[in-house]
Structures are given as C-alpha cells and as structure tokens.
Design a protein around this nucleic acid. Structure first.
Lengths: 246, 246
DNA sequence: TTCAAAACATGACAATAGTCATGTTTTGTT
DNA sequence: AACAAAACATGACTATTGTCATGTTTTGAA
C-alpha cells in the first residue's frame, strides 16, 4: 500500500540470443520435459534478456507478445490501483513461467507489471511459437496445465489468507512460505535468500509499510525472526506456522 | 467470516449416466471444441449428477478422483480457516470446469469445498480419462490452458481487490461483476439471477455479515441497488463501477 | 396458514490497521 | 570516508471493520 514510484520505463541492460545449451537451464521443468531435439528447437526460438534494478520486463496494460521463463534471479508481479497503492501478487523464481496464460491469447494486454528484483535473466519467445510448441508437444501442454493449476491454487490460497486473516497472521504466512521456498540453513535458523524490504513484505500481504514494520518489530522482540532485508533470518518456524494458522 | 455450519455430508439426490446428446451441452466450450466423434466418446465417459441444497460435491481434503464441469445451476468454491470462518473463492456457472487443475495430478486432495447453490447438475469423469483426452486432443488442451489462465488472472485480480480496497469498494466490485456475469434486464435496472444472501456476499468479499448488511443498506439508501437475496437488482451500475475503482 | 428458521437490521463498543509526522539507522554510492 | 537516499522506527491520532447483543422481517416447509 505504498505510493507507486513514478520511474520512467527503462530499457533492459543487455540482450542476446541464448547459446546452445548453457548451464542453469536444467532448473526449468518445462524445458526438461521436451526431447533433446525439441529443446534445442525451442531454445533456438528463445532470447535471453538481462534486467537490473529499476527496469521493467513489461508493464500493466502493455500488449502481450511474448511468453517468458525466469532463468536466474527473481521477478515480482505487481498490480496497482488508480490511487497509487500497489500489491505484489507473486514472486517468480527460476523455472517459473509467466505470460503462459490467457493474457497471451486474443491479443490481450498484460494484467500486471513484471519487475526484476535485483539482477535477473529471463528467457522469452514469441507467443505464437509458444502455442505452436504446446500443440506439438502434449507433454509440454500437460506440464503447463499442471503449472497453471498450481498457480491457481496458490492464488486462491492467497485470496483466502487476505480475506480471513489478520495482518500479523498474513505476515507470518509470508515468512513461512519464504522460508520454505527460498530459505537456506543458517547458524541461527533459516536465512531467506530473496532480499525483501519491509515495504516489499507490506505489498505482498496487503498492509501499509508502517504496519509491516511494527509487526516485524514484534516478531523480532518475540525472537521469531532477526535482521532486515539483506539478512532476514527465520528463527522460529514452528511458532510462525502456529501464528499463521491460529 | 461467518461460522462454518456443521452439517453432515449428504449424498447427492440423483445419479445417472448422461444420455447421448442432451440439450444444454452447447454451453460448454471444452466440449464444443471436440469433434462430434470425440465429444460422443467423452460424453460416454462422463456421468451427470444432480445436487441440491445442503449437499457437498466434494469437501476440502477429499482425494481428487474426478474432473468436473458445471452443466446447470451454480456451484460455489469455498475454503475455511481453522476457527470456522469461511470464504467463497469463486462461483462457478454452467460451462465452468473444476478440478481441471493441479490438484488432479499426483493423487492430491481438494484444496477447497464445492457446494451447489440451489439445484445444480454436474458432469464428471475420472481424472485419468480426462488427462488421456487432453493428451489426445491438442485443441482441448489449449482450451484448458486458456481457461486456467483466465481463472488465474481472475484469482489474482481478486487478491488485489482484497489487498487494496475497502469493504464498500469490494462489495461494489462484486455487484458489478454479478451484474455482468449473471445479470438480466429488469424494469428497474439489472436483476442478478444468482441468489445470494448478505452472508454469501460477505463471504465473497472477506467481511463479516454485519458489515455486508450495513454497506448494502447504504447502497440501497443511495439508490444503487434494491432488494435482497431472491430479487437483487442493480439500479446504478455506473456509480457502482466508479465506487469500485476510486 | 402457521410456525420456526434464516435472513436482515441496528446500536454500542472494541480491536485492528491506516495516516501523518518526525526522527534514526542502514545502505550504497562517489 | 562522506553523504544522500532508502529503509527502519515510533508516537499520536483517526478510520475502518469486527464483535456482541438484541430485535424485526422474510422465507420456506409442514
């Protein structure tokens, strides 16, 4: 619920055709499913683009032309309201697909904005080529159905949390899923590798920055977490889980 | 945010194999896409079941065995929290698919409960047959991808509204989408054909029943709507749209 | 038609979260 | 190392929504 920063759209930092079979691609289930031959063909149609702080991958309302996959780094999907408040719908990680969905049909436009969180690398291909590939590969189509189904369940779970839970419970839920999705072991607990400020967290759970700060301060006092954006550590996952579902 | 009614699970009122080519099926895009031959085959694998008030089509946590399509009437998808509050994620109308998604893979269980709103008729088929059909019919698979993509966008739009808007705005949004999705012309405006109590509306927008009642009373006073559950009429759609996005 | 259950309604008060103001600390450049 | 920008923090006050209690109206089934 922060004010939307009025930043001018910037061009991506670098762009080049993706090489034959680079490392990192084995984190992408959709590509793993294809035969080596089809994978080569698809990679030939994909372009790798790097983005950095302040870039936009695309913005709400832009026409949908490409299908995207996150290769490295994380990407956030954001929507904003007319009065400048914004909410983060989802943080995409390597292997995640975006614009794999309905907005890519019918020449529609993007329902939200995609922004890199730090340095990221994204693969993309023309949506026509993507659809053609899916038609020709039932395995790939089934994988996309599975993936979209998971995303739908996740989005509905998020809606449920927003509809029913208090701010502190929503924040606890967020911390739990961060620990599970991007946590690594740390002497004091679980370190969250995605860098998230209090404002980022606020936007993810639908509260103001001040509220997120106050609640995180309480969590810190209660020894549930330590540190801020760069070095956020979950110290008591079980208690956070309990709080999230109480 | 009403207390969850503790009703015992009931068996469906009637069950019979679906006949060859009954009326009503032309409202179902997924079936329309198939060739006449494939459609016959699929219909042969589907069972039509009728449900009535108080029935459950399935409940949160039940194992997923079937893929479903709404044929007649409306079905609500509900999730509840441990302390008995519940929220309605989506009202499905004829042609809508459910359990077409990830919960049907991996022998997972239903992430929510499906309840008939009044009398409904639902087609279902074993999930294995459904997946087989999709593999064999790229058109059908593409249609499911398109459908799931739309559902995902819708769910994310809902999450945005829950995260950013006030209770009155959320209710206004609901009324607008009801008018558009299930409204018919009426001398005084647009009549909503789905029967929804204030409590149903409350569950759909994440507020208490009392809050929904108070806000609807204000809308009535301001001549934006008239009537209750059985005969809800939208009198001033433009003003509701304005309120929803202000 | 009657009657009970459900839905609708409203007031008083409490809890939660937002707003605005102000100040401190941290971070990331030059 | 210095400095500006961003992030974090906190207090005081307000707005919104929830909670609980109670009563009226409507609906649907016997």
């Amino acid at each position: 619920m922060s004010k939307q920063p009025k930043r001018s759209p910037q061009q991506p930092a670098a762009e080049r055709p993706s090489p034959g079979a680079p490392a990192g691609l084995n984190q992408i289930p959709l590509l793993q499913i294809l035969s080596a031959q089809d994978r080569q063909k698809v990679l030939g149609e994909m372009t790798e683009t790097r983005y950095g702080k302040g870039d936009y991958i695309f913005r709400e309302g832009d026409p949908t032309e490409y299908f995207h996959i996150v290769k490295e780094g994380s990407v956030k999907c954001v929507k904003s309201s007319l009065d400048g408040k914004e909410c983060t719908l989802k943080v995409l990680m390597p292997g995640d697909l975006f614009c794999c969905d309905a907005s890519a049909f019918d020449g529609a436009s993007h329902p939200g904005t995609a922004q890199p969180m730090g340095d990221v690398s994204v693969l993309r291909m023309k949506k026509e080529a993507y659809f053609k590939m899916l038609r020709a590969n039932p395995d790939a189509a089934m994988e996309v159905i599975r993936y979209l189904g998971n995303r739908l369940n996740e989005a509905q779970e998020k809606a449920k949390v927003l509809a029913l839970d208090r701010a502190d419970q929503r924040l606890a839920s967020l911390l739990v899923s961060l620990a599970e999705r991007s946590g690594i072991k740390d002497p004091n607990g679980i370190r969250v590798t995605v860098r998230l400020t209090r404002q980022d967290m606020a936007n993810m759970v639908g509260v103001t920055t001040e509220t997120a700060i106050r609640i995180m301060a309480r969590f810190k006092k209660d020894r549930l977490v330590t540190g801020t954006a760069a070095r956020l550590v979950i110290r008591d996952l079980p208690k956070l889980k309990l709080l999230a579902s109480t």
